[in-house]
């Protein structure tokens, strides 16, 4: 088991080490994921229903929204 895990680790380790173009791409991927998950998701895309404590309250909110007169 340990040998298998070590081989998998070495497979990825050596793969990443030998990358040339891939390093630039990984930098882009990491910056992009940071912007998406730690800036956009945290500050701009919070779940609208998070303010409700349970499913019942969420259901009531949605039913209220769907049956609003102004819609």
């Amino acid at each position: 088991m340990t040998i298998v895990l070590k081989r998998i680790w070495l497979f990825y380790y050596e793969g990443f080490r030998s990358m040339t173009l891939g390093k630039t791409l990984w930098v882009i991927i990491l910056i992009k994921l940071f912007i998406m998950f730690f800036i956009l998701k945290v500050f701009f895309f919070r779940d609208e229903l998070r303010v409700y404590d349970n499913e019942q309250e969420k259901q009531q909110h949605i039913i209220h929204e769907l049956t609003l007169e102004k819609r």
Binding site: M36, L40, K41, F44, F45, R46, D47, E48, L49, I62, E65, L66
Partner: peptide, 9 residues
């Protein structure tokens, strides 16, 4: 992300 925020209904 947009489903949960802008399109929650």
């Amino acid at each position: 992300f947009q489903f949960g925020t802008n399109w929650s209904n």
